[in-house]
Design a protein around this nucleic acid. Structure first.
Length: 862
RNA sequence: GCGGACGUGGUGGAAUUGGUAUACACAACAGACUUAAAAUCUGUCGCUCUUCGAGCAUGCGGGUUCAAGUCCCGCCGUCCGCACCA
């Protein structure tokens, strides 16, 4: 028997698909459309097995839907702008563009070798000027429509490298490259006004428009948007207020606890803090320390609660004569609300921690339902639940939800504030002080201000020079790029040197895939044919940012007439990540970013992990998603080289449920390879069987084999529909085992039916082998064009069923009953069973439960 | 710190959503074939015991139910996100 040789068959079938243009998508015909999209990759160098998992899943859906008779669009491209290209340029001196396009060449070849059913004619990279010109166009359109504004925000600044740092580049408050303590700097930047659409983005999560999205993603986005009802109010100064700060405006969601207030706090970034710091070096030092934590919310909130008391007090709004101290506190975010709070330590854990540390009052004002106000007290744990207000003047006796509006009304009546809706969501800052991104198409003129680049001058192309040997952004020191004239007055002017956040690039690529055209972002007619994406697939790590930005950006595009959908992704599937241990060189004198080791650079020996190069023990770090920066990546190449693309695809989809993270292990890959051969061995002796066996199979022929065939078709179909690829594969194993056992003694017709179903069922998973088998068995045309098999309902049912029998909830035996047996008959059979009788001896039957088709439980007592 | 998830044999996992816990696969072990190896095939495989039967097992501790991996309460551990990684 000839052994299956993927090295020979796989390239041959890929060529056949290419020549037949099998996966070319055309926006016409009477078939229903189906747009399948996996989140496009960043061209980091080579694909890793996380990519294989992601794209194999999308490919199963694309091929399955094609077989189901849909007109399928399944494109591929590159999220090609971003920092890794600049980092590579700094390290090796090359150009980000060469590095990026070089990587794309390699990764395209690797992806093609996976045998993906992709329409490669639509491929593009976001760094192609033909793509980003439209992004610049849309920016100007959005600006005109008021979707964009310029304002100040904070960035991490590395004083040595003279550059802005991403949060991930700030490690323990220091720059990852320079090691210098990071400063917070205020910069004028461009923002998309996503908060203007917060309400609709939230509403769509709740009103069924995103019914095809998983609940956990919707919940995460909902919490991220963080709509809250609360009160904006002013605390009036009592003493010590600097000029212009006679009142402090705070935001609170708990105005019902105002009587429990013990201090007012402001963020270290608050203007009041800056004002006091002018002549208080100690305060300035404190603010600097707080700012050294960087800009990330995580760092700010995780830090120990610390504060600095200002020489200022404010009046309590309700209690005559009562004053409150004012603190600068490190846990208050300038970005949220007004950057200032009032604190009620008894009913907020952060406030309580702070109050205990600085010995401030803790006044309980909400009494839990089952507690007594006279004795209720708060020690280490703030009470945040519902209850009745006490210690609170005019609010006394009210439940929390009634006290809230009453407190707001009172403050409004006093003219000191207003009830408001607030969002946690912030406007989307899109300016990046980096070279390798899409240039923001504006010009700064001393006279005319900020002026858009005229349409006919687009695209603003990135200049070729990119010298990363000096600190800072190469665009800033490129006179040819920077120096220009004002399009309005003709005077000398400066070109904007910031580039777009790469999330802008990925916020509309799906629309470009659907309808590329040279003169506009989309051809609206074609875009409207394909959109929305019917099935979007990507990592759970994108649950919030990318998916929210894309939803927002699509709304902008809709208002400009580029698309006619607000929600770009009809159905979403978030797959788990492939995670792997990280390895860190123990040499702490090296910079952190240079210490990571690839898995193939280490080996395990006597329970230790050592570096192959140095022989030294390495630090085994946490298990994390595969990423190039931490080098914990595993390439699929070796597997594909040894066993073929089909085996690699099959292996990545078997075993683990798609939505769950998997810790990478190669154990089991040989099982995938054995399966490929087992299927081939099953088909090999049956050359041309489809031509010999008739289409009609007489009733009663090989009922068990036929039932297995149809049950498998039914089950695998259902599994694919629900993204249960691991279960589909387990079912296919059972089918293959059963087919193999039955084939020698079964009729050619039943065997042919089984093999025909098998070939088509495996085609989405292992398409090359499916083609080889299909051709060998006498199939017409290509397997990728063959229709999906249909299960005959009549063949699914079995005549008898097996039911377990429990006595007092413990399984004692099982009985086989006719499928149509009624309840009494089942009860009788169960009680009469010998094994059951042993447990009924000397007992009295109290209750008898029969769940039809499931289980029998006999409850007894002595 | 906040938000979202996950936790079942030596390993990856299954369990029709409250109804036979461990399907399917990997690894291991034993056997067949072979001069030998590979490949292939057959069988065993959660733990404990008095093993033909029974008891105990789904991260830990409680609870609801005739029945709990599944539901509820409280812990522990791991992963993802936290706005300039993509």
């Amino acid at each position: 028997m000839a052994r299956y040789n993927p090295k020979e068959t796989e390239p041959r079938w890929r060529k056949a698909w290419d020549e037949a243009d099998s996966f070319k998508a055309v926006a016409s015909g009477d078939k229903p459309k189906y747009f399948v999209l996996e989140m496009f990759p960043y061209p980091s160098g080579r694909i890793h097995i996380g990519h294989v998992r992601n794209y194999a899943m999308g490919d199963v859906i694309a091929r399955y839907k094609k077989a189901q008779g849909f007109n399928v669009l399944h494109p591929m491209g590159w999220d090609a702008f971003g920092m890794p290209a600049e980092n590579a340029a700094m390290q090796s001196g090359g150009h980000p563009r060469d590095w990026t396009y070089g990587n794309i060449e390699i990764m395209r070849e690797q992806l093609k070798q996976m045998g993906l059913a992709i329409d490669w004619s639509r491929e593009f990279a976001t760094c192609d000027p033909e793509y980003y010109v439209h992004e610049q166009r849309m920016f100007l359109e959005f600006w005109k429509k008021g979707f964009i504004e310029r304002k100040e925000s904070m960035v991490n600044w590395d004083p040595v490298d003279q550059t802005v740092l991403a949060n991930e580049q700030v490690i323990d408050g220091k720059g990852w490259r320079s090691g210098a303590p990071v400063e917070r700097r205020r910069l004028s930047q461009w923002f998309f006004r996503i908060t203007d659409r917060a309400d609709d983005l939230l509403a769509a999560l709740e009103d069924g428009r995103l019914a095809g999205w998983p609940d956990n993603v919707k919940t995460m986005q909902k919490n991220w948007i963080g709509k809250s009802k609360g009160l904006k109010m002013r605390f009036h100064a009592d003493a010590g207020a600097p000029r212009g700060f006679e009142a402090i405006e705070i935001y609170t969601t708990r105005p019902d606890t105002l009587f429990g207030a013990s201090f007012v706090g402001v963020s270290p970034d608050h203007p009041l803090a800056a004002e006091f710091a002018k002549d208080d070096p100690k305060l300035q030092a404190f603010i600097n320390e707080c700012q050294a934590a960087g800009t990330s919310e995580e760092a700010i909130e995780k830090a120990d609660k610390r504060g600095y008391r200002l020489a200022m007090t404010v009046k309590h709004p309700f209690v005559e004569g009562k004053t409150l101290p004012v603190y600068v506190a490190n846990f208050i975010l300038m970005q949220y609300g007004t950057g200032a709070i009032f604190a009620c330590p008894a009913h907020d854990q952060r406030d309580l921690d702070f109050a205990r540390k600085y010995d401030l009052d803790v006044i309980p004002v909400v009494c839990p339902p089952d507690a007594d106000p006279a004795s209720f007290d708060v020690t280490d744990e703030a009470y945040v639940g519902p209850g009745t207000i006490f210690n609170s003047g005019f609010l006394n006796g009210l439940p929390v939800d009634e006290a809230l509006p009453k407190a707001i009304a009172k403050i409004e009546e006093m003219g000191d504030g207003q009830g408001t809706t607030n969002y946690r969501l912030r406007d989307w800052g899109i300016s990046r002080q980096r070279y390798w991104g899409c240039p923001i198409p504006v010009i700064h003129c001393e006279k005319c201000g900020v002026v858009p680049v005229p349409e006919q001058d687009l695209p603003v192309k990135l200049p070729d020079e990119a010298d990363f040997s000096k600190p800072g952004n190469p665009l800033d020191r490129n006179p040819v790029f920077v120096n220009t004239t004002c399009p309005e007055c003709g005077a000398d002017a400066r070109r904007e040197t910031d580039t777009f956040d790469t999330f802008v690039d990925s916020s509309w690529y799906f629309a470009r895939f659907a309808a590329p055209t040279p003169d506009a972002p989309t051809d609206p007619e074609e875009a409207n044919y394909w959109l929305p994406v019917d099935q979007y697939i990507g990592g759970i790590e994108h649950a919030i940012l990318h998916l929210l930005y894309a939803r927002y950006y699509t709304r902008n595009m809709m208002e400009c007439g580029h698309v006619n959908v607000a929600e770009p992704f009809e159905n979403l599937f978030t797959q788990g990540m492939v995670v792997h241990e990280t390895y860190l060189d123990a040499d702490e004198t090296k910079k952190l970013k240079d210490r990571w080791l690839f898995p193939e650079q280490v080996e395990k020996k006597d329970g230790k992990v050592i570096s192959i190069e140095t022989g030294e023990e390495v630090i085994v770090g946490s298990i994390e998603k595969m990423s190039k920066s931490k080098k914990n990546v595993v390439s699929p190449e070796e597997i594909a080289e040894t066993y073929g693309a089909d085996a690699a695809r099959w292996f990545m989809l078997s075993d683990s449920p798609p939505e769950r993270d998997v810790e990478w292990s190669e154990a089991g890959v040989e099982g995938a390879w054995r399966l490929i051969n087992r299927i081939w061995d099953l088909c090999e002796p049956n050359a041309g069987i489809f031509n010999r066996a008739g289409a009609d199979i007489p009733a009663g022929t090989d009922p068990e084999l036929r039932r297995l065939t149809h049950v498998t078709v039914d089950g695998v179909t259902d599994d694919i529909e629900h993204f249960r690829f691991n279960k589909a594969i387990a079912r296919l194993y059972e089918f293959i085992n059963g087919l193999k056992k039955a084939a020698p003694n079964a009729s050619e017709a039943a065997v042919s039916e089984g093999l025909s179903a098998l070939t088509r069922l495996i085609a989405p998973f292992i398409p090359h082998l499916a083609e080889e088998c299909w051709a060998h068995l006498g199939g017409e045309g290509l397997a990728c064009d063959a229709p999906w098999p249909k299960a005959e309902k009549a063949l699914l049912v079995s005549e008898t069923i097996t039911m377990p029998v429990q006595v007092n909830g413990k399984r004692r035996t099982e009985i086989t009953v006719p499928a149509d047996a009624d309840k009494e008959a089942v009860e009788k059979l169960a009680i009469e069973d010998e094994a059951v009788q042993r447990h009924l001896d000397g007992m009295q039957i109290v209750k008898l439960i029969v769940v039809p088709g499931r289980i029998i439980n006999i409850v007894v007592k002595p």
